[in-house]
Design a protein around this nucleic acid. Structure first.
Lengths: 189, 189
DNA sequence: TGACAAAACTAATTTGATTAGTTATTATAT
DNA sequence: ATATAATAACTAATCAAATTAGTTTTGTCA
C-alpha cells in the first residue's frame, strides 16, 4: 500500500495544476487521484467533496495572489504600487487560468478561513488610505478596481480579446484610466 | 404520449428560469424535463447535451441583453446613452443571475450564430464613433467598459458587495469614472 | 390514406462521485 | 520494544445523472 505522504498543500497544488491544464469544471477526482498515485476514494481523507475542493482552490488562489502582490509591492508606493498590484494579479490569472476560474466562480460571501481574509482588498485599501481619500470613496474605488481587474482577466481568459498583446495594452490603459479617476477624487477634497 | 409542443425558445426560457432559481452549475436535465412535462431523454430531440444547453443559454442571454439595450437607447445619445446601456446590462444580470452566470462562464470565442453577433459590443462601438475617438482608442475603451461591467455584475452576483444599494451607487460611480476617461480622450485630439 | 419525419417513450449503458467496510501504516505512550 | 489509537490507504458497492439505443406514437403532407 505505502503511503503517499500527502497534505492539503500538495493536493491543492496538484488540483490547481490539473485545473490549469483543462478547466475548473473539468477537474475530477479520478484524474486527481491518478496524479497523486492513490485511488479516488482515498481523496476523501483529505477533501470533503469535489465541489469543496474547487472552493478550497478558490481560497488557495486568493492566498497566492495576496502573497505575490505583497511581495511585489515591497519598496513601491503611490500610483506605481497600484499599477504593479494590478499587473501581478493579471499575470497570476493568466498563468493560472484554472485557479483563476475558481476564484471568479465561487462565492466569496462564504467566508474564507480567518488567516487569509482578502489580502488583495486589504492592500488596495491601504493604498487608498495612503492618499487623501475619504473612506467612503475608497470603498467605491476598491469595488471598481476589483470589478475591472477580475472582469478583464475573465474576458481575456475566455478569449474575448485577441491574443496579440494588445489586450495587455488595453488592460494597462484601463488601469491608468482608473488611476486618473483616483486623482480626481483627491483634488476634489 | 401527447406532444408538448416545445421549441428551442420554450426550452431556453424554462432552462433560463431554472438556472435563475438555482445556478447554472446546478441546472440539470431531470428538473428541466420535469418542468416541461417530458422525460429527460426526450430533451435530446431539442438539445445536443447539457453542456451545450448552457452554452445556448449564454447566447440567448446576450441576445436578450442586446435587444433590451437597443430598445432602451431609442432617442438617447451621448453620455446618457452609455449610462443607460450600462444600467440595462446591470439590471439584466441582476434579474437573471443564472443566465448571467452562463454569459460570464462560457467561451465567447466560440462564435455565436451569425444572426446575433455581439450586439452590445456593436452598440457601444457606435457610441464611440458618434464621438471623435480614434478607432484604436475605441477598441481599448470597449474592452475596458465590458470588463468593468461584467466584472462588477459578477462580483455583485456572488455577494462580494453588501446588498444595501450601495453597490449600485458604486457601479454608477465607476461608469462615470470611465465616461470621464472617454472625455479625456476626446480632448486629447 | 399512407408514408415519412419529428418527438416522445422505456430500457440500458456509462461515468463519476460518494459511501461502507476493511486493512495497512504511522505515531504515541507505556 | 510493543500495544494502541489515529490516519490514510484500499476494494467493493451504491447512487445519481447524463447519455445512447431502440421503439412507438403523433402529426404532416403528398
Amino acid at each position: 500500500m505505502s503511503r503517499a505522504n500527502l497534505d492539503k498543500r500538495k493536493i491543492l497544488e496538484t488540483a490547481g495544476a490539473l485545473a490549469n491544464e483543462s478547466s475548473i469544471k473539468k477537474l475530477n477526482l479520478k484524474q486527481l487521484a491518478q496524479k497523486l498515485n492513490i485511488q479516488p476514494p482515498s481523496l476523501y481523507n483529505h477533501v470533503q467533496s469535489l465541489d469543496h475542493l474547487r472552493f478550497d482552490l478558490m481560497v488557495y488562489g486568493w492566498e497566492q495572489v495576496g502573497e505575490r502582490i505583497a511581495e511585489a509591492l515591497i519598496g513601491i508606493s503611490g500610483d506605481d504600487a497600484i499599477r504593479r498590484a494590478c499587473e501581478v494579479f493579471y499575470d497570476y490569472a493568466e498563468e493560472n487560468p484554472g485557479i483563476f476560474e475558481a476564484m471568479a466562480y465561487y462565492n466569496r460571501d462564504s467566508k474564507k478561513p480567518d488567516g487569509a481574509p482578502d489580502r488583495l482588498t486589504d492592500i488596495l485599501f491601504r493604498l487608498c488610505r495612503a492618499r487623501d481619500i475619504a473612506e467612503q470613496d475608497a470603498v467605491h474605488i476598491l469595488r471598481i478596481f476589483r470589478s475591472y481587474i477580475e472582469g478583464f482577466a475573465l474576458l481575456a481568459h475566455y478569449g474575448a480579446f485577441p491574443r496579440d498583446g494588445s489586450a495587455r495594452e488595453s488592460f494597462n490603459f484601463g488601469v491608468d484610466f482608473l488611476i486618473a479617476g483616483v486623482h480626481q477624487l483627491e483634488e476634489k477634497k
